[in-house]
Amino acid sequence: MSDLKSARIGVITFPGTLDDRDAARAVRIAGAEAVSLWHADTDLQGVDAVVVPGGFSYGDYLRAGAISRFAPAMSAVVDAAKGGLPVLGICNGFQILTETHLLPGSMIKNNHLHFICREQNLIVENNQTAWTNQYEQGQTITVPLKNQDGQFVADQRTLDELEAEGRVVFRYSGGNPNGSRNDIAGISNERGNVVGLMPHPEHAVEVGFGPELTGSQTGTDGLAFFHSVLAHLVAA
């Protein structure tokens, strides 16, 4: 693909999804076309990338993301992701991606049991993925974090593997907000085309509507996710 404007990025809506519109808005602000995808459809409409957005799909019943995993659209996403399609899971979307086993580990309730909603600093630990290539390695970014089941857990072997392979993509900075192992906020698959994280880059893409403006910060630190995937698609 050579023309950014021709990039089409799908955003899936499940029953109980909340952040699909913000994700679509982020895609448009980044300069691409947002394509609405419905959970019950198997057709991904030929999109170039997919965002699995946040919310409380199926009311978090059974386990967060557990029922959405079986949606027809997710079967198509899993197949396409294995072929290299860039997929970003945000919050509930990350939980869904772990339930599909596209990403390892799982999320359990925050260790303090409270719902969190705050601006969160993250360190970019890997800027080589499809969704982070426009960040500097080691850069600190600020985006909203809002969840109840945000504590990332995995067995020691999986954690060691993620660390050794550079698949920890984001780490919490300024204190661990939820008890996540190794301060992990986001991870990727081996190939780097699938990324999942609990914080919300799509809520930090427009001046005045993202995190508070302080110093040189613009509150738009999340936008580079979407610029990254476009750069990835152009390079592909």
Binding site: I108, H112, L113, Q151, V153, G179
Partner: peptide, 13 residues
């Protein structure tokens, strides 16, 4: 049941 090695925040509460 939650795995023994996994912290169970609800049980703790």
């Amino acid at each position: 049941m939650p795995k023994p090695e996994i912290l169970d925040p609800q049980g703790k509460a």
